[in-house]
Computed example of a mutant assay.
Amino acid sequence: MPSDFGDESGERLVDWLEYIGQSAGDSVMCSTADKLKSAFHRARADSTVMGVMNESEGLNATWAKLNMRDFEALPEYDTLKEIIGKRLDADAIEHDFYRDEGGRDWLLFKTEDAAEVSEAFRDLEERTEKALDESLRRRGKTREQARDEIPLEERAKSAREASKALDAEKAREKGLDIDRFEMRSK
């Protein structure tokens, strides 16, 4: 199975989604996979932004940290940390997870590896899609069948949340572009 997904992190994604599907149902498995993909997408943007900000601000910071709040909100968070850790290990990216005094979890990595961390999260986002398809296939279902189980009201709520997240991301990108321009003009 690891060869189907490139390494152990892909296999663990399938296992994680199957666990979610068995304990909560196919529709929850699909919506949880969507939330995980969104978390990877946001983390990808945040890790890239963090590296760019450190460079543009002239910081000589050796380490960067990425807030894990989006992943903490998902079921089986420790399994997700394991999946992320294995994926970063596969690329030999030095990293660590730690919890601050406020109880927030962070992924610590070298600022010079920001682009590689972003790429690893992009890969995990894509693997989540494949893992969902594989998990549903094993259960004898298609995505459409599983999503049809989700009440229309819940699907509409998810669509609204996704739209808000996209708008927030676009606003953040515009703000970052302005910051870069101002930095260069000084």
Rank of each mutant, 00 (worst) to 15 (best):
residue 2 P to W: 10
residue 3 S to P: 11
residue 5 F to V: 08
residue 8 E to C: 07
residue 11 E to I: 09
residue 11 E to R: 15
residue 12 R to H: 09
residue 23 S to Y: 09
residue 25 G to S: 04
residue 26 D to V: 13
residue 26 D to G: 07
residue 28 V to K: 08
residue 29 M to H: 03
residue 33 A to R: 12
residue 34 D to Y: 13
residue 35 K to T: 02
residue 37 K to E: 00
residue 43 A to N: 00
residue 44 R to P: 15
residue 48 T to C: 13
residue 51 G to M: 03
residue 54 N to G: 10
residue 54 N to M: 06
residue 54 N to I: 05
residue 55 E to M: 10
residue 58 G to L: 13
residue 59 L to Q: 14
residue 61 A to R: 14
residue 65 K to Y: 12
residue 65 K to F: 13
residue 66 L to I: 07
residue 67 N to D: 00
residue 69 R to Q: 04
residue 70 D to L: 09
residue 73 A to L: 14
residue 74 L to E: 05
residue 76 E to R: 15
residue 77 Y to F: 11
residue 78 D to P: 15
residue 80 L to W: 04
residue 82 E to C: 14
residue 84 I to Y: 05
residue 85 G to W: 00
residue 86 K to W: 08
residue 87 R to A: 01
residue 87 R to D: 07
residue 87 R to N: 08
residue 93 I to H: 07
residue 93 I to M: 10
residue 94 E to I: 07
residue 94 E to Y: 01
residue 94 E to K: 10
residue 95 H to M: 12
residue 96 D to M: 00
residue 100 D to L: 11
residue 102 G to D: 06
residue 104 R to E: 01
residue 105 D to H: 06
residue 106 W to E: 01
residue 109 F to H: 01
residue 109 F to N: 02
residue 111 T to L: 01
residue 111 T to V: 01
residue 113 D to R: 04
residue 116 E to C: 04
residue 117 V to Q: 04
residue 117 V to Y: 02
residue 117 V to N: 00
residue 118 S to T: 12
residue 119 E to C: 11
residue 123 D to K: 00
residue 125 E to R: 00
residue 126 E to F: 08
residue 127 R to T: 07
residue 130 K to E: 15
residue 133 D to F: 08
residue 139 R to I: 03
residue 141 K to V: 09
residue 148 D to T: 04
residue 151 P to D: 00
residue 154 E to D: 06
residue 157 K to R: 12
residue 158 S to N: 10
residue 160 R to P: 14
residue 162 A to W: 10
residue 164 K to W: 15
residue 165 A to F: 14
residue 167 D to M: 11
residue 168 A to M: 13
residue 169 E to R: 07
residue 171 A to G: 06
residue 175 G to H: 04
residue 175 G to M: 02
residue 182 E to R: 15
residue 183 M to Y: 09
residue 186 K to V: 06
